[in-house]
Design a binder for these strands. Structure first.
Length: 148
DNA sequence: GCCAACGTTGGC
DNA sequence: GCCAACGTTGGC
C-alpha cells in the first residue's frame, strides 16, 4: 500500500491512535476492489513511501477491519467528496490498517535488483495503482531480505 | 461503443 | 521539472 510521506507517512501511522488508520481517499476502482473484495482481516501489507526522494518499503502493517464505506465520499468539504455517491449507494470503500513494525527502508532501486521480484506488480513500468497485490513468494522473499 | 483530450501518478 | 503511462471523461 503506497502513501506519500508528505501526506501520510509511516511515522504518522505509528503515532495514530492504536497505530491504526482508515485507508480512505482511494479513488481508483481497481485499488478499491482490492480492499473491498480481496483483503481480509489479518492480511499483511507492506507500507510503501512514494513520490519522495527515497521511494520504497518502510514497514509492515496488518488489515484490521473489513471494508466499509469510505466516510470522506459523503463530506462536501473533503477533497475526496464524491457527489455521485450516496449513503444508500456508496461508491468507495476502505479497510483499516494497523502498523505491525517499521523496517529499514527497502528502496525501489534495491527491489529492482532482485530477479526474484522482477514480476512484482508495484515495480512494473507505468504502475500507478496505490494498492497492488503481492505474491506469497515475493512476500516471503522480501521478508528474508529484511530479515524479519 | 469509440477515442481524443485531459488529468494524475510517480520515478527520475 | 520532465515525461511516460494510464484512468477517466465526454462528445459523437
Amino acid at each position: 500500500m503506497k502513501s506519500e510521506p508528505l501526506k501520510f507517512s509511516i511515522d504518522d501511522l505509528a503515532s495514530s491512535p492504536n497505530q491504526t488508520t482508515a485507508w480512505d481517499g482511494v479513488r481508483n476502482y481497481q485499488a478499491r476492489n482490492f480492499m473491498w473484495k480481496q483483503m481480509c482481516v489479518g492480511d499483511q501489507t507492506f507500507f510503501y513511501h512514494s513520490c519522495c526522494a527515497q521511494p520504497g518499503i518502510m514497514g509492515i502493517a496488518e488489515v484490521t477491519s473489513p471494508a466499509y464505506p469510505d466516510a470522506t465520499q459523503f463530506d462536501p468539504k473533503n477533497r475526496h467528496f464524491d457527489p455521485k455517491a450516496s449513503q444508500d449507494n456508496p461508491r468507495w470503500f476502505n479497510v483499516e490498517i494497523t502498523l505491525k513494525q517499521k523496517t529499514r527502508l527497502l528502496t525501489i532501486k534495491e527491489l529492482r535488483q532482485y530477479p526474484e521480484l522482477k514480476r512484482m506488480r508495484v515495480l512494473q513500468t507505468g504502475n500507478r495503482l496505490s494498492i497492488t497485490p503481492v505474491d506469497p513468494d515475493e512476500w516471503k522473499f522480501i521478508l528474508k531480505i529484511l530479515q524479519v
